[in-house]
């Protein structure tokens, strides 16, 4: 039971996380060796209640890891729509771009997560933002053969 707060967050162990931050509140936004916070671990592993709990305790969803990864991108890449929506209730940059060459929208398209894409577009995600390889979200959907995703993105552009 000497797991780090990051591992506990990933495992959704709210009781243990609560105990840790009660003893040392700075752990709430502590970054591991790659810059990932407990919220990022919870977002990456789809732990909805944990993400909600951490944010209620004051976890900062705007924190970037070493390569500018953020909780929103991790949740979008994993297709965890509930967590995407929870994070979007906070003031975050929906178009944050990281050194891995992507935005939350591009990660959601890559993973073919249509519900995440809808949530991001509703919050103003920039559909023209290209990955550093030059792929726009639509070009990515076409290249990956994601027909439903392609139509969703095309319909969004038509409605702009």
């Amino acid at each position: 039971d000497n797991l780090s707060i990051h591992q506990l967050a990933a495992h959704g162990d709210i009781a243990q996380v609560k105990m840790h931050i009660t003893c040392d509140n700075s752990l709430l936004n502590s970054q591991d060796e790659r810059g990932f916070t407990p919220l990022m671990w919870a977002a990456a592993f789809g732990e909805i209640e944990m993400a909600q709990f951490l944010l209620e305790k004051g976890a900062d969803p705007k924190t970037f890891a070493r390569e500018r990864e953020c909780a929103l991108s991790l949740a979008s890449a994993g297709g965890f729509t509930d967590i995407v929506n929870i994070i979007l209730k906070h003031e975050v940059d929906v178009n944050s771009y990281d050194w891995n060459g992507g935005t939350p929208l591009l990660y959601a398209v890559r993973g073919n997560h249509t519900k995440c894409v809808e949530a991001l577009l509703r919050h103003g995600a920039d559909i023209t933002f290209e990955a550093d390889s030059g792929y726009s979200p639509i070009a990515l959907a076409v290249a990956l053969g994601y027909r439903k995703m392609q139509k969703l993105l095309e319909d969004h552009i038509l409605n702009l």
């Binding site: 797991l3 162990d13 671990w41 977002a43 890449a77 060459g101 992507g102 990660y107």
Partner: peptide, 21 residues
């Protein structure tokens, strides 16, 4: 119960395996 350790989160390379656009 012994919890298994998760590996550190990572983001996928978005255009891995796709032709240069």
């Amino acid at each position: 119960s012994q919890l298994s350790l998760y590996t550190s989160p990572s983001l996928p390379n978005i255009t891995l395996g796709l032709p240069a656009s």
